[in-house]
Design a protein around this nucleic acid. Structure first.
Length: 570
DNA sequence: AACGAATGGCGCC
DNA sequence: TGGCGCCCCTTCGT
């Protein structure tokens, strides 16, 4: 419902004011009415009892004057007003840890009218939150062939997914602002790189919890994307909203700027260029970056110079948020952005409007990635609350082969959610993505991280921890190990399968501290490490220590065999 | 502890 | 086309 419609439905209500003394023209009176009405509309307190309502039959004359003239306004008591639509009779908002939708609004999850999130068919089983949509069928012969061909491609026996299901260690206040991107080291299994909203680059050896480095002088604002150099795994490229592409040596922290789109500094917000999407083309030695005006820029790594002209690849003036080169054919480039499209390009023939395919979405596309091994599939995440799977083999890119309803529509103030492939999965079917909508777990509203099989649409696992009360939009699966890294607000988390983390615990006698952020208490081995000046910004934990203390049963709800779990649906 | 700010997208006028 | 208000399941700092 639009704001206007809501306002129209709401009775005209004003509050008597004692400052209303001066004479006013009709125009000003209207203004005053508007202002007063807004005062009421903005009231959050449902307990407000005494307000004076101007009846519709008043004919629009000023009630302020009526009051002055002594006409007693109608007095009613407004109890329980829905804070979303301002109507009475229902309430929206959190009740405990469960959010109740306003019934006047479309479903918050699937965006369709007629029901609320609680009753959404895509959320039939409450304890699992999100049930994927069935494949959109067109029921024509091409579709049938397409389906059959795809089935052939997908191995009939898939390896069991190993779902990291326990927080192995966590670093709190590693970054001073929210985490924007994560990247595992290409050869060193224990190194995780993280970028944040301030432009800082973190390097963390999560096998030795305290070993971390933060480089704060590479970028001045949002570090949107980074990639390791294929030629040198000690070098990382990064694209930032400060308009520069950096090349950083991880050992020394020395950084060079490959490109600066704002050479003249700040000339106002309308001209400031920001870089979002980035990828590398190893064959050609190129860094590809895209900006918030719809342009793609190529930088030659060897000569450190811009190559060719910038090319408009999305609607002029719109942000290009993602770039990805095809793993098999690196000349194939996938881009996505705020013009509601993902597009496939041949970088050997880059011209305006020369894209090979345009993948339409109903809203902004947060990410688009080729499948990691064959490069034949594409997964896109759009803020219309849908993960889409596209198949490029048969060129049928007009419609997605699958749409999975999944709650991640909340771009403001959060790093955009992106479905990320598990590059270890030979069947190219597992993706991980954080969930925006919360689950009520024992009275706590938690935001799980979902593992989804995109070949079936099934929710394989949802991972959460009572100590992580913030939303986790940034997630990355380890390229070789069964490890998940999550960025949640300013914190980083490493998840492993339970067995593995227990082995690590036996080896590791390190003092472990867990921060219970809700109660602002630390627990773990009982000692306080606040005075541990070297590490006071690090709060880490291992699952076993956590469990031995007063914690609820292991919260992590993760399973490969979901058959036994989906029984409560009624 | 209440509040403002963050620079995000969209629909409306 | 651009400016503005709304969205209203955020998070942090003051």
């Amino acid at each position: 419902m639009t704001a206007r419609a809501r306002r129209a439905l709401f009775p005209e209500v004003i509050i008597e004011r004692d400052t209303d003394t001066e004479e006013s023209s009709d125009e000003e009176e209207e203004e005053e009415e508007e202002e007063v009405e807004n005062d009421v509309v903005e009231m959050d307190d449902p307990e407000v009892e005494e307000v004076k309502v101007k009846g519709k039959e008043d004919g629009g004359s000023s009630t302020a004057i009526n009051i002055k003239k002594g006409k007693s306004p109608i007095t009613i008591s407004l109890k329980k007003v829905c804070k979303v639509c301002k109507k009475t009779g229902h309430q929206a908002g959190f009740q405990g840890a469960t959010y109740i939708d306003c019934p006047m609004k479309p479903c918050f999850l699937c965006k369709l009218p007629g029901h609320t999130t609680v009753n959404c068919p895509h959320r039939a089983a409450m304890e699992f939150g999100v049930i994927p949509a069935s494949r959109k069928r067109t029921l024509n012969s091409l579709d049938y062939v397409f389906e059959r061909q795809m089935r052939h491609k997908v191995p009939s026996i898939k390896p069991a997914f190993v779902i990291p299901d326990e927080v192995n260690c966590a670093v709190i206040r590693y970054h001073s602002r929210r985490v924007t991107c994560l990247e595992f080291h290409p050869t060193n299994n224990n190194i995780l790189l993280s970028g944040d909203k301030k432009g800082q680059l973190g390097v963390w050896d999560f096998s030795k919890v305290y070993e971390k480095t933060v480089y704060g002088n590479i970028h001045s604002c949002l570090l949107n994307n980074m990639k390791f150099s294929p030629a040198n795994d000690g070098t990382v490229y990064a694209a930032s909203s400060d308009g520069t592409v950096s090349c950083t040596d991880l050992e020394t922290g020395l950084s060079t700027s490959l490109m600066d789109l704002n050479p003249n500094g700040w000339q106002g917000g309308n001209s400031w260029r920001m870089l979002y999407g980035m990828d590398l083309n190893a064959e050609k030695g190129l860094v590809l970056v895209a900006d918030n005006f719809g342009f793609l820029h190529l930088v030659d790594v060897r000569s450190n110079s811009k190559k060719g002209d910038s090319i408009l690849i999305h609607k002029k003036g719109t942000k290009v948020v993602g770039l990805h080169c095809n793993p098999v054919q690196p000349d194939l480039l996938l881009s996505c952005g705020n013009d509601h499209f993902a597009r496939i390009w041949d970088i050997r023939r880059l011209e305006v409007e020369s894209s090979l395919h345009g993948l339409p979405h109903s809203r902004v596309v947060n990410s688009a990635y080729f499948s990691p091994l064959s490069g034949s599939k594409i997964v896109t995440t759009s803020i219309d609350n849908r993960i889409r799977v596209w198949d490029s083999i048969f060129g049928n890119l007009d419609t997605p082969s699958r749409e999975i309803v999944h709650s991640h529509d909340f771009n403001r103030h959060l790093t955009p959610f992106r479905a990320e492939w598990d590059t270890k999965d030979p069947s190219e079917s597992l993706v991980v993505i954080g969930r925006y909508i919360s689950e009520n777990y024992n009275g706590a509203a938690l935001h799980p991280i979902d593992f989804i099989d995109i070949s079936t649409g099934q929710l394989i696992a949802e991972v959460m921890d009572p100590n992580i009360t913030t939303i986790s939009p940034v997630n990355k699966l380890h390229p070789r190990d069964d490890v998940l890294a999550s960025g949640s607000s300013r914190s980083l988390f490493i998840w492993r399968p339970k067995e593995k983390s227990e082995i690590v615990q036996e080896k590791d006698e390190r003092k472990i501290i867990v921060c219970d952020r809700k109660n602002n208490k630390k627990f773990g081995d009982g000692s306080d490490n606040d005075d541990d000046s070297g590490h006071d910004d690090i709060l880490s934990k291992k699952g076993k220590n956590l469990k031995s203390k007063s914690r609820k049963p292991n919260l992590v709800i993760a399973s490969c065999s979901s058959s036994s779990k989906k029984k409560k649906k009624s």
